[in-house]
Amino acid sequence: MLSDRSTATIRATLPAVGAAIGDIADLFYEKLFAAHPELLRDLFNRGNQASGDQRRALAGSIAAFATALVEHPDTRPDVMLERIAHKHASLGVTPDQYEVVHTHLFAAIADVLGDAVTPEVAEAWDEVYWLMANALIAVETRLYARRGVTAGDVWHTWEVAARIEETEDVATFVLRPADDTPAPAFRAGQYVSVQVELPDGARQIRQYSIVGAPSSRLRSIAVKRVRGQGTPDGEVSRHLHEHTRVGDLLRVSVPYGDLVLDDLEAPLLLASAGIGCTPVVAMLDHLAQEDHKGPVTVVHGDRSPADHALRADHVRLAERLPDAEAHFWYEAPEDGHPENRTGLVDLDGITVRPGTHAYLCGPLPFMRAVRARLLEAGVRPADIHYEVFGPDLWLASS
């Protein structure tokens, strides 16, 4: 994939670029938003920019891609690329935006590294960037085509048909197409982007997993209110909780996401924590409707039963499967809750069947701990799938 000449240059400069990639990402976004303030207002998540999460995710993905090109020249990190491409498609990212990113990213590289960026170094990193960008463009083009939409034209207007208060901090919004057209198909575990206009005129976008099986023409999203203190964190969830009622209209994208059941013949393990239960409940609903007979292990951790959003559905759907077992951990359980299910999720004592395919969703520390335990139990790395709400910091924290 990467030319021999560029491979040698990337191998030699990767330590220096890797050490400076955080500074490069910071300066890149500064330059990008100075030239294109509309991108921060209407495309990028302002909360993730304020917290630095988006910068860390960008730095991690670039470093991981370059490392993969050097260390595994005959393969491509398609899992990482697919996850990014699905997120981009749900936002309506277009190929021309990669040119904009290229301009400001390479200006940031030149400013941070200075004289170290020789023409040869610039040429090699340019090759890395366009290998990654063109691979993403190709995947995104396929994703748009599968949905029958053009790049950037992913939005439809939906009406709020019902609102259900699940917990103090989680509300489910039941949606239907405002024009009464059929709802786009989706696979259990996928998400939609929701765009709302905030009081300052910004049109901010967030992703929410679709709750429920794909058979219904209605679509439900469970939104957890993020209580940010003096930052843009949670501004969309807060707006939805405080202002969105039955009859209101929302701009919603067609569904995307790569956390989907890929092998129903294998034993399944569905592990979640907090609001990460939403794609898992959708998977359970799908399995129940398909009359799934195979073994399914359900694992979930939460602060308390009262904080466990969709708890009744989580329990009911697991009970509908003939060969399923559910294990719930609570940090503050009700009286009578098993002592060995108190505190954080601990897979010790949980049977992990040979050939298990695992699906994880929740906070990053939770998923890393569960993944480590599954690897110890003999689950193949390729059979452990995960979803991150927000920027994918898995690589950035490795």
Rank of each mutant, 00 (worst) to 15 (best):
S216Q: 12
W394V: 15
D115K: 10
R217I: 12
D263Q: 02
A89M: 10
A324G: 07
Y330F: 15
D169A: 14
D383T: 10
T67H: 13
T141F: 01
F186N: 06
V154L: 09
A369P: 00
G336P: 00
T7C: 10
A66T: 08
Y129N: 06
V149W: 03
L2A: 00
A85S: 13
A372E: 12
H102I: 00
V223H: 03
R142N: 12
R320M: 12
L374I: 09
R142D: 15
R11L: 09
D248H: 12
R203L: 05
V128G: 00
H385N: 13
V160E: 04
P391Y: 00
S216W: 11
V211H: 07
F328W: 10
A85N: 04
H243D: 09
A89I: 04
T278V: 04
V370R: 04
V149C: 08
G362T: 06
G294N: 12
P95S: 09
A63E: 13
L347H: 10
V93I: 15
R251Q: 15
R353A: 12
E120R: 01
L261G: 08
A66E: 07
P15I: 12
L218F: 12
P279D: 06
V101K: 00
R147C: 02
K31Q: 14
Q207A: 08
T181W: 05
Y191R: 02
V315G: 00
V252H: 06
L393T: 02
R373I: 08
V79S: 13
V298I: 15
E165T: 15
P15D: 11
P37A: 09
S6N: 06
V352W: 01
V149N: 05
Q190N: 06
D313S: 15
S237W: 00
V370M: 10
P95M: 10
D307A: 14
I205T: 13
Y144L: 08
L91Y: 15
V139K: 14
V70G: 00
R311E: 13
A396D: 02
T118S: 13
P77T: 10
H72S: 14
L2T: 07
L270I: 07
G274Y: 08
G362P: 00
D285M: 02
I109Q: 06
P184N: 02
A66H: 07
P119R: 04
D248R: 04
Q289A: 14
L40W: 01
I221M: 03
W125R: 01
V160T: 06
A171R: 14
G294Y: 13
P73F: 06
E166T: 10
V260L: 06
H308Q: 13
D115A: 15
R341S: 05
V154P: 00
S272G: 13
Q229I: 13
I164H: 14
G355W: 01
Q49C: 01
R187C: 07
P365G: 10
R187S: 12
R147F: 03
F65C: 00
D291G: 11
L91R: 05
E165M: 07
A171E: 09
H243L: 03
E127D: 04
A151P: 12
A309Q: 03
N134S: 09
S6G: 04
L198Q: 02
